[in-house]
């Protein structure tokens, strides 16, 4: 009894001795900046203006209460742009997530079934794009999508078809209701990103005990039953992780659009983060940008919570 209490005390002490510095650190480098960002959303703040009072909040940078949030529902160009960028971001994210899973999960299963050598090789190659710089990827794909001298158009021409006039700049180029420029960004994003989920899935598949599968096979399960009844349930924690991370990263898509399209044509690819960035640093409306980023934060938070709920409660056993 006494020994047990002693043990628990040691463990607690150890946990706190590690977590205290980490939390202090997070306070300084995460929490305070986050609170700061939220506070800015209630001010008409611009770093260009000195302002007055604490941290320059006051004077020329006045407190405006909820004005920034109310303005989001207004009829101004800024409000339109905000809503457009939200729509674009959702469109992007909800296309990327299923497409990503549709590519990575089957591919992971195929790779997992391959010879050990082939497995290592394919996994290595598929992961390669994820280690590359987003700016470089944007530049390379920008060259690929270049309308005249670009790779994609010339491949399409070489098989006798006519490519669209321009991949990234034509506002009238729309496929199934989705702007071609958006599709082009999604393809580039998937190309860079899919290896990451793939590797996680492969690792998770390798973690599934062989005897489980063998047992299922002895019971006469076929391939698809095995996938739905054995593999998928066991991948639940991984699935949660992958969905959350994929959604989080696609909701925060920025550099590809910034470099490849600058949000164009006609704001068809302006993402919420681009809007935030431009307002904060180009249009000198940092208060407005802060309010927008708080909305983005709420969205991300909501989706993450929903995913946690759905994937956790449904499959609890």
């Amino acid at each position: 009894m006494g020994q047990r209490g002693q043990l628990q005390r040691t463990q607690q002490r150890f946990a706190y001795s590690i977590m205290t510095p980490i939390m202090l650190y997070l306070m300084l480098f995460s929490l305070i900046p986050m609170i700061w960002a939220v506070v800015l959303g209630f001010f008409d703040y611009s770093p260009v203006r000195l302002g007055s009072g604490l941290f320059g909040l006051g004077g020329d940078n006045p407190f405006v209460a909820l004005d920034n949030y109310i303005a989001m529902f207004g009829d101004t160009q800024a409000a339109h742009l905000f809503r457009t960028s939200l729509r674009n971001t959702f469109l992007f994210s909800f296309l990327v997530l299923p497409l990503n899973l549709a590519i990575t999960l089957p591919l992971a299963i195929i790779i997992e079934r391959s010879h050990a050598r082939a497995k290592g090789f394919f996994r290595a190659v598929y992961f390669l794009p994820t280690v590359t710089s987003a700016v470089a990827v944007a530049l390379i794909w920008g060259a690929i999508y270049s309308p005249q001298a670009g790779l994609l158009s010339s491949i399409i021409r070489s098989v006798g078809m006519t490519p669209p006039k321009a991949w990234l700049t034509d506002p009238q180029a729309i496929f199934m209701g989705i702007p071609i420029a958006m599709i082009a960004l999604i393809v580039a994003h998937l190309w860079q990103d899919f290896g990451y989920n793939l590797v996680i899935f492969i690792a998770a598949l390798q973690g599934i005990p062989a005897n489980l599968r063998e047992a299922a096979m002895v019971d006469g399960a076929n391939e698809s039953q095995m996938f739905w009844l054995v593999t998928l349930p066991l991948l639940r924690p991984t699935m949660l992780f992958v969905c959350v991370m994929t959604l989080l990263s696609s909701l925060q898509m920025f550099i590809l659009a910034q470099v490849m399209t600058a949000g164009g044509p006609r704001e068809q690819t302006t993402t919420i983060l681009m809007s935030i960035y431009q307002n904060a640093f180009r249009f000198q409306n940092m208060g407005w940008a802060a309010a927008m980023s708080f909305v983005l934060f709420l969205i991300i938070f909501t989706f993450t919570m929903i995913q946690f709920r759905v994937l956790k409660t449904d499959w609890e056993y």
């Binding site: 939390m23 960002a37 938070f301």
Partner: peptide, 30 residues
């Protein structure tokens, strides 16, 4: 490990993933 404040700490961590970096850039810089 189980210790009080664990959930709060984990929440702060999760928030760090969720907040766009662009927004904390200026305070971080300061």
């Amino acid at each position: 490990y189980e210790f009080s404040g664990k959930n709060l700490m984990f929440g702060v961590l999760m928030a760090q993933i969720m907040i766009p970096f662009q927004m904390i850039m200026i305070p971080l810089y300061l």
